[in-house]
Nucleic acid binder design. Structure first.
Lengths: 114, 114
DNA sequence: CCTCAGGTACGATTCAAGTCATACCTGAAG
DNA sequence: CTTCAGGTATGACTTGAATCGTACCTGAGG
């Protein structure tokens, strides 16, 4: 199974309000900052973001990001892939990803750890 | 009296999180959309935005926008002026105002009234 | 079958934010 | 002085969001 994409809902009806609401949260912004900084746009696992919150809350945050149209979630059953919708975002909101990219990766959550 | 500027607090410490939180609210985003669309950047009165909320709540919203570093508030005692901090915003967050400007002025609050 | 790790669903809690009512301040105009 | 409009301060209410606990589902590997 290649995994089914769960992002269908809001493709071209991206709402700026929903996007700002999504990016208003520190943890979600951390995810988006990391995604924006990685121009390979490879599919990533949910655990690759080192979020200091429970897995239930992570599920919630990824759902918000998906419903805002910022990411795709690929369901593999017992695993999940995350992919930035870079092209769509750039088309509707040009410059938005650049703003996130200009932020220190991970923001105040990661500080310096290496 | 020329009026004293109340915006001093956060000039160069503009926080992207605070900005996104400020723009997450529909009414505040409406204000910013209108300000971004008017390139004359003239000082405007608080009542020029037609917000469908009480004046106490308007005070609250303008305070949030000011504390996020997005506007200046000029206090005339019994009157108040609002001015977009276009140059500062463009410097820290280039492209942000363009995103707002691309939105329909007033957004879903005004609908069409002309 | 069982076990295990990753993820979700539901409910409950906690907290921040938007909103307004009441009361008060400020300056301009009578 | 009084009146009035614009704005603020404080408190209270209400809604929404973030968080987690418990329970359950999913697929891989024994």
């Amino acid at each position: 199974m290649t995994g089914k994409n769960l992002a269908g809902p809001k493709t071209d009806v991206l709402d700026l309000g929903a996007v700002f609401r999504a990016l208003a949260d520190e943890h979600r912004r951390s995810v988006m900052t990391q995604l924006a900084a990685d121009h390979s746009d490879n599919e990533r696992g949910c655990n690759s973001f080192d979020l200091p919150i429970s897995k239930q809350t992570q599920t919630h945050h990824f759902r918000v990001l998906r419903e805002a149209g910022l990411i795709d979630e690929i369901d593999y059953g017992n695993r999940k892939g995350i992919r930035l919708r870079r092209a769509d975002i750039e088309k509707r909101f040009p410059g938005l990803l650049a703003l996130l990219e200009a932020e220190p990766s991970g923001g105040p959550l990661v500080a310096e750890r290496g």
